[in-house]
Write a protein that binds this DNA or RNA. Structure first.
Length: 289
DNA sequence: ACACCAACGTAAAGTTCGAA
DNA sequence: TTCGAACTTTACGTTGGTGT
């Protein structure tokens, strides 16, 4: 009989040591095998741990809608006592205690710019993937005052909102950002750390891990009309969770990132989303922005 | 232990834009 | 005109979860 207390202790210890908010069942099973606490199955990796998960014996266990199991890091407390709690109840970490392992300086730069353009009255919350990792080049960002050739998201949003107006100049970035702010739009990122330098698999894992916190933030920000997810993978990973949390997602299909030939599609989908009938407050005014 | 199915991960292809 | 960068889409093999 596996020692559930020792297993829970080891999983929480590894999550804390690695600065992770959650871990998938297969990785967790590998940890336990390495620690000599639960021998993993070679043919069916993760199987022994999944049996414990199905029995509801793992602290912080969670099963996604796609049936995949995860173990979340939980707040400090006696593991043995908490392991006996009812199974399959998500135990998310509250935002103030979440581990943020990467240097704050870059993040603070993004956050400062973002806050400069936070609208007084938030109508539509735009969600992007993450701030871009500039590599060795200058930092880039949706809310950065300089317009670079890589400002695809800014160009897409500006085009969608104001591109139909004669004489609209997308190059006046600061003025356009102020107008976006005045019109009640604000952009946040699903992942607060850049993920564009990661492999597609790592990127997906990173975004998926950020979804619970993204949902919390969207609920807290409570945009009047709802959110628009500005990339296909974001819609695929977050739309269901957002709707489950009673956050209105203003489009029913994924919207492509506004890059190159996909910008026209983004603009069309974005404009359609703004006409979406879904509302958080059915009594809200019918007037458009 | 096995079969089945859905979801995932990865590589390759496709598209556009800007620079040379 | 060509090439490379940046990114999405697609196809297909692999993997994970479940029921028996």
């Amino acid at each position: 009989m596996p020692d559930a207390s020792a297993i829970n202790g080891e999983l929480q210890r590894r999550l804390k040591a690695d600065g992770l908010a959650s871990v998938d069942a297969v990785t967790a099973a590998r940890w336990l095998d390495q620690a000599g606490l639960l021998h993993d199955s070679v043919q069916r990796p993760g199987k022994p741990l999944r049996d414990l998960l199905r029995a509801g014996r793992i602290l912080g266990q969670r099963q996604e809608s796609n049936r995949w199991w995860f173990v979340d890091r939980v707040q400090a407390g006696p593991p043995a006592a908490r392991a006996a709690q009812p199974p399959a109840v998500p135990t998310p970490i509250s935002p103030p205690t979440r581990v943020r392992p990467v240097a704050e300086s870059g993040e603070a730069w993004y956050e400062k710019l973002r806050l400069e353009y936070r609208p007084e009255r938030l109508k539509v919350l735009l969600v992007a993937e993450s701030p871009p990792d500039p590599g060795n080049g200058p930092r880039r960002f949706f809310y950065a005052p300089d317009l670079s050739q890589h400002d695809n998201l800014y160009r897409g949003v500006a085009e969608a909102l104001y591109g139909a107006e004669p004489g609209f100049n997308v190059d006046s970035k600061v003025q356009v950002l102020r107008r976006i702010q005045a019109d009640g739009f604000w952009l946040i990122d699903a992942s607060e750390q850049p993920v564009n330098h990661l492999s597609s698999a790592e990127k997906t894992r990173s975004i998926r891990a950020s979804i619970p916190r993204l949902v919390d933030r969207c609920v807290a920000l409570a945009p009047e009309r709802g959110v628009i997810l500005c990339k296909r993978v974001l819609f695929d990973l977050a739309a269901t969770a957002l709707r489950a949390a009673k956050v209105a997602v203003l489009h029913d299909t994924s919207i492509p990132f506004p890059l190159g030939n996909h910008r026209a599609q983004f603009v069309a989908d974005f404009r359609r989303a703004l006409k979406h009938p879904q509302r958080l407050d059915p009594s809200a005014s019918e007037s458009r922005l």
